[in-house]
């Protein structure tokens, strides 16, 4: 029964959030602030994560492929893995931990200190002022982050391939580009937009409905991160099946 109630509440929240994203009034200043918060300030953590993931991927695939003399596929494996999977998923998970938690804590604190009620009494819809700009910023920022992360991740693979494994730089780059198709990058960017939506939605939802003071805000933060991570992994399969299922 509780599960059904929670599902209903989340569905209703999602519908309201989406509807307020496309109806005026808009708050461009807050949207811009959120884009900076999500897109710009997450760059270091996403960059580091994808850099080392690209490096590890090159190393692991080389040692694996060497068993059946297919070392030449390392560059292709790195670029396809990073653009299709690692880039969007790792960026999504990192942003869920960094931004999702922050959103839930901020909105949750506003809830328990009656700031959300204050918005309402000042004739300002909290969905338009708090939720819609964050969700739009999530959808817009994550693809940018993933694009940068993809480049850094491929570069990580290149560093290991060329400087540790002894590949020729030109050949490595040629192999990287040779088998890369637009759909590989596009599918990753679509995933990123979906993950950005999910992270912001979970952060806002759990923050908006938090209660019981500091303990409630703590629980909201945890729930926002955990639920966003789970939804990212589930939706990742769904989107992958949609693009590459056939």
């Amino acid at each position: 029964m509780n599960f059904l109630a929670a599902t209903g509440r989340l569905s209703s929240f999602t519908a309201a959030a989406i509807s307020h994203c496309v109806r005026p009034p808009f708050y461009p200043r807050i949207l811009f602030q959120q884009i900076i918060e999500i897109g710009f300030y997450s760059l270091p953590v996403v960059g580091l994560t994808t850099l080392f993931s690209g490096m590890v991927l090159a190393l692991q695939s080389y040692t694996g492929f060497a068993r059946f003399s297919a070392e030449g596929a390392v560059a292709t494996v790195v670029v396809l893995s990073v653009t299709r999977e690692l880039g969007p998923v790792l960026a999504g998970l990192m942003v869920a931990g960094r931004v999702g938690a922050s959103m839930a804590a901020e909105i949750g604190t506003m809830r328990v200190t009656e700031q959300i009620d204050a918005l309402t009494t000042l004739s300002t819809n909290p969905f338009k002022y708090l939720v819609a700009p964050r969700i739009l910023a999530g959808i817009l920022s994550l693809p940018f982050l993933v694009l940068v992360g993809d480049i850094i991740g491929v570069f990580g693979g290149y560093i290991i391939g060329v400087y540790k494994l002894g590949f020729n730089a030109g050949t490595y780059l040629q192999r990287t580009i040779e088998f890369l198709e637009p759909i590989d990058v596009i599918s990753g960017l679509v995933k990123a937009a979906a993950f950005g939506f999910l992270v912001a939605l979970m952060g806002c939802y759990h923050g908006y409905w938090s209660n019981r003071g500091a303990q409630g805000v703590g629980a909201a933060t945890t729930n926002a991160v955990v639920s966003a991570c789970i939804l990212i992994l589930i939706s990742n399969y769904g989107i992958t099946a949609l693009f590459f299922g056939n």
Binding site: T109, M110, E114, Q115, D117, T121, S123
Partner: peptide
């Protein structure tokens, strides 16, 4: 309801100022 809110002013117990 939003239009009606303009007629009210509410002082909250904890002030509820935007941080």
């Amino acid at each position: 309801r939003e239009a009606m809110m303009a007629r009210f002013g509410l002082l909250f117990q904890g002030s509820a100022l935007f941080d």
